[in-house]
Design a protein around this nucleic acid. Structure first.
Lengths: 367, 367
DNA sequence: GTGAAAGCGCTAACAC
DNA sequence: GTGTTAGCGCTTTCAC
């Protein structure tokens, strides 16, 4: 590893002081004459100099690195978030570190520590256990963005330097369920995530709220892991009377469709299916999956702004029903309205608008 | 951001010198008496001290950070690699940076530069354009692991500090094709990636080799993007005579199955399908997809060892046909043998063994 | 407009 | 076994 040129080499080459080289590179904080500037630039070019980000961070007391801490990188929904976030950070000259807790709370904390040691300037946290270890978050020396914290949770109430993204899974679930109701299905079941998780409960609440509003009774509620196999197994447990199912996670929905097929049933004829946290894969399942989608690009943008401290303004907007699949579709009800709100001075909530993207699995398109 | 305690604070608290604190933390390079050690540990605990990784890296001249540079993080195959690599690095106390080139060569280079500035110690590169910009790799001041470089490519031949992982996509393609042949299908088509890519060509070579060996004629060869939509569109172009298709990428295969269904055909009855670069999603497609799988965990382990310079030994082993799906299956032919080889002293090739995982899409399980 | 020099927090060679 | 100290490459204050 042949020694790379340093700022000293550039200064020597340019016949200036090292300070001037910094001024040129950073365009400040002091002015430099055009002539000197050119000499420095030439020297940089000639030596092939490239600033040492590590040294820069040490001197600055802060790094250009941010981290994403998730439960499962292989989950397409989260991989998509990672991708979107990477793009936003890249365009701001920042880099993204990833941590995969593998659904393990202990590991989650170890990753937090590792990030802290690496002087990661801020992190986006899709937590495993909920409520999250608030003390760990509070003591984190940087901005923390929480993606999946329900509004009523402690993380959403306690003040701190962290910022929560209001995904409102409650409303997502409600929207999905309302769509099924609008089709006239009578016996709505739900596949939820593990019961002990706060976000599972949020989704269940949304499902129940929609049913209540329509004055309908809740059907079977099956709790399953947020995995394909979880959905597959759940499909085998769905009773004859059930004519529509709200699946609370796309991975589960994928398995659910497979399970239905394996047991000789089909969506939407035998059982209609609507899911949430959609990814582009939904359009290519057989049948294509109707699901609620989060505006991940918009979320990533907001998150990046918040992390880096270049907050612009929170755009408002209602939730909509889209015909986003390749197939024809008839729009349907469900227009929940989310409001970007602030709970306290320290805690910014970012409103996120979700959308229902129609596929074949809900029966919208005949068969 | 209240100032965090530094090593100086710990030394003061423990009543020792700063050097001793380092010795304790790093368990060397000099011995420390048990008594002093305890005092230091107590001080660390009391102050809540956490080493500053940035400063450490500066002093050491190398960081604990590695990077993964891919074309598309949302591709489940690559997300899976990212996950596996993160796990391996985490267990070695290293962190993983990700870069998503979005299939853009220019961006790929920018990411390389960013990593270089950040003093990333080594990187894993799944390149966009092939052959890769060798000069950029050669000048990279760290270990570079190339994932998708065919054996015969310049990157595989030119000496350097980089190390290539021998995925042997040629053999993967061959294995998949041979499986179709063993079923007795007569008219084999192939959906390849973009023609200008080296890895597309490798896969095509494998397909042709299998056909040649069986003394069969090549059927339609359709080139499509490595996307679901690419596979979907390709399915609509497949002629009546084709009874089996080798799809060169799992995303394409997913779209292909959807396209078949949309056009009223089904796998495997109308067209059998086998793909490569499988992920767990394959088992849950309808029908479940037969595909060649890479041992990503094993690969990640080897890559991590290589990156960090803790190389153990290259385990050998043949390729096998597995019944890895949830469904019953009859094993089938195709046993290509890969050898971990060395092209030069500087270029280590890591042999990777692939496996055919049987699903329903190839017709193995009746249907 | 330019340059000398004091850190940033840590490692490790070198003295004691 | 322990302490002193000279860097690592950069930023930035403060003189000139």
């Amino acid at each position: 590893m042949g020694k790379r040129p340093t700022r000293d080499d550039v200064a020597r080459e340019a016949g200036t002081s090292t300070a001037v080289v910094s001024y040129v590179i950073n365009e400040g904080p002091r002015p430099v004459s055009e002539e000197t500037k050119q000499k420095v630039l030439a020297a940089i070019h000639k030596t092939g100099y490239m600033p040492n980000g590590i040294a820069k961070s040490l001197a600055n007391g802060s790094s250009d690195t941010y981290a994403l801490l998730v439960t499962d990188m292989a989950n397409p929904f989260l991989a998509q978030m990672a991708q979107a976030l990477e793009h936003e950070l890249f365009s701001r000259n920042k880099t993204l570190l990833v941590g995969d807790s593998n659904d393990d709370p202990a590991r989650q904390l170890e990753l937090l520590e590792a990030f802290q040691r690496q002087q990661v300037s801020g992190l986006v946290w899709y937590g495993v256990d909920q409520p999250l270890p608030l003390n760990a978050i509070d003591s984190y020396p940087g901005t923390v963005v929480l993606i999946n914290q329900p509004a009523g949770s402690p993380a959403g109430q306690q003040a701190g330097r962290r910022i929560r993204v209001e995904v409102n899974e409650y409303a997502e679930a409600q929207m999905a369920t309302e769509h099924l109701i609008s089709h006239g299905y009578q016996h709505l079941a739900m596949i939820s995530g593990p019961k002990e998780r706060l976000n599972s409960r949020e989704r269940i609440r949304g499902w129940k709220a929609a049913l209540r509003q329509a004055d309908m009774e809740a059907g079977a509620l099956i709790s399953a892991p947020y995995t394909r196999q979880g959905g597959y197994d759940a499909a085998l447990q769905i009773g004859e009377e059930t004519d529509a199912v709200f699946v609370s996670n796309e991975l589960q929905a994928m398995g659910f469709l497979a399970g239905l097929a394996a047991s000789g049933r089909r969506a939407p004829d035998d059982v209609a299916v609507v899911a949430m946290n959609r990814t582009p894969a939904a359009s290519y399942l057989v049948p294509s999956l109707t699901a609620v989608q989060l505006p991940h690009a918009q979320m990533a943008k907001r998150i990046a702004e918040v992390l880096i401290g270049n907050i612009v303004d929170v755009e408002d907007g209602g939730n909509t029903v889209d015909t986003g699949s390749r197939h024809g579709a008839k729009p349907a009800g469900a227009g929940v309205r989310l409001e970007p709100g602030k709970n306290s001075d320290d805690l910014e909530c970012i409103g996120v608008n979700h959308t229902l993207v129609i596929g074949h699995s809900c029966g919208c398109t005949g068969r």
